[in-house]
Nucleic acid binder design. Structure first.
Length: 434
RNA sequence: GGCGAGUUACCCAAGCGGCCAAAGGGAUCUGACUGUAAAUCAGACUGCAUCGCAUUCGGGGGUUCGAAUCCCUCACUCGCCA
């Protein structure tokens, strides 16, 4: 499992900010919100109960969810009481994506994913003390709700005109994809969650991504209408890369928090490769470093970008936050061994083997061709792609350029027990020869 | 329910009987340059393979020597009318 719990005790907000609200602002974590003045007042006062939901759309949370988890943790560190919600029911419906209708997953799959997500969320919050976090599942209060009750008690408070104006809905109505009644109804379900938590726990704040804004206000409006109560919402910005590409992807794959889906080594590398222009905003969002420390790193990026100090700190901070100190040290050691200045032969075999274990790796007989090896290690998606890469001169075995797609391991490294396979400058895999 | 438009490779989008494995852009990958950056330039980008072969343009069926392109049908989407 993750080693996150070891981090909880050392995390703290930056005391130089008058309140957590100012700190969230400075870190760029507030994109939209309900009444700012009121929110600032509420967050500076007595502890409030707040919630953030996670829908089971995959077996693991990803970096976008990590933003939410860290917002929750910062609010908790300021004394407020978190409710971690997993979407056992909303996950069965699916919120409208801008592009196209979701494919519904089976109830078994959703239930399994809900359990996995709950375990992950629990790693980032403290369940001890006066403001201990609590976990809830919206299936608990929707499973028994009949369609008739739902329409009478909840649906009656919603105007279709308002629902149609929500960005998520109107975007879909204006697209070729259209929208199903199922996804159209999603905002009502999420609004009802907030109402339920307001009634049961006195929850008065929901946080979430700004793409969820329509769903967040669905809840605050409902609470106001039904209970004549005051509730708030904070929408975090969508994290974007300065070059316009999508944040949180590596080679087209999402970066997951589950170490089985994205290895700590790959996770560390992802952060290490952050653009200069993005690294400071990332530190603000994803690390607990103080403003003073981040501003120091900012000047280092400006004056000595080649040192990549901010990237190293960022990679270290986030990897240890998610995977723990030991896994982070192993990832760093592997990177040093493989990207270090010394040649591979100077590494002692134990260090090399440990490094290769951190990479995608395979065990194979010496007669395997190098093209096949690219496929077996996952470095290339097909034999054709592997051949192409070799023809392009982009494949190396133990740092020696591979000349022919048909050469075998035995022909290339006759006496080796293991080898480093590389595609391009920094995509690596380990090969163990049996 | 009626009429019209549409469904092309990861995304957007051309093609409208052979020269189409399918223009162009984006994303992605490789190389040069670098700091395991960015920007820029060059190349690649369905699969298997020695010219070549196989499968692809929503699904199915047909016409034709030959179809992404024509016809029929089914599904889905959008728009207008009811």
């Amino acid at each position: 499992m993750s080693g996150t719990s070891e981090n909880l005790s050392i995390q703290h907000n930056d005391p130089s900010f008058p309140s957590v609200w100012e700190e969230l602002q400075w870190r760029g974590l507030v994109h939209v919100s309900t009444d700012e003045v009121e929110l600032q007042r509420v967050l500076s006062g007595e502890p409030i109960t707040f919630y953030c939901g996670f829908d089971p759309t995959a077996p693991s949370l990803h970096l976008g969810n990590l933003v939410q988890l860290l917002v929750m943790r910062r609010l908790q560190l300021a004394g407020h009481k978190p409710l971690g919600l997993v979407g056992g029911s909303t996950g069965l419906i699916g919120d409208p994506r801008p592009s196209a209708e979701r494919t519904l997953n089976t109830k078994d799959v959703v239930a399994d994913w809900v359990n996995r997500l709950r375990g992950q969320v629990e790693n980032y919050l403290s369940f001890e003390g006066d403001n201990a976090a609590r976990m809830v599942n919206n299936l608990d209060w929707t499973a028994s709700l009949s369609a008739i009750d739902f329409l009478r008690d909840v649906g009656k408070h919603y105007r279709v005109g308002t629902m149609l104006k929500k960005d998520a809905v109107s975007a879909r109505l204006n697209s070729e994809a259209g929208i199903s009644y199922t996804e159209f109804s999603y905002q009502i379900l999420q609004g009802y969650d907030f109402l339920e938590l307001y009634r049961t726990y006195g929850c008065t704040l929901q946080t979430g991504g700004s793409d969820q804004w329509g769903n967040l206000t669905s809840g605050t409006d409902l609470i106001h209408r039904v209970e004549r109560g005051s509730a708030h919402a904070i929408g975090t910005p969508l994290i974007t890369n300065s070059d316009g590409t999508k944040f949180g992807k590596s080679e087209g794959n999402a970066i997951w928090l589950d170490p089985e889906m994205t290895s700590p080594y790959a996770f560390y590398q992802f952060w290490l490769n952050t653009d200069d222009g993005d690294v400071i905003p990332r530190l603000k969002v994803f690390s607990f470093l103080s403003r003073e420390e981040i501003e120091r790193l900012e000047s280092v990026v400006a004056e000595q970008p080649f040192k990549r100090e901010a990237q190293r700190v960022l990679a270290d901070e986030v990897t240890s936050l998610v995977h723990g100190r030991a896994a982070t040290d192993a990832a760093i050691a592997a990177a040093q061994a493989l990207f270090g200045q010394g040649d591979l032969e100077s590494l002692d075999p134990r260090t090399l083997e440990a490094a290769l274990r951190e990479l995608p790796n395979t065990t194979t007989p010496p007669t395997t061709t190098l093209a096949q090896l690219l496929v077996d290690t996952g470095l290339s998606p097909s034999l054709s792609a592997a051949r192409r890469s070799i023809a392009e001169g982009g494949v190396y075995l133990d740092n020696v350029k591979v000349q022919s797609e048909t050469q075998t391991l035995a022909e290339t490294v006759p006496d080796a027990a293991m080898a480093v396979l590389r595609r391009g400058k920094k995509t690596l895999a380990g090969v163990f020869i049996e």
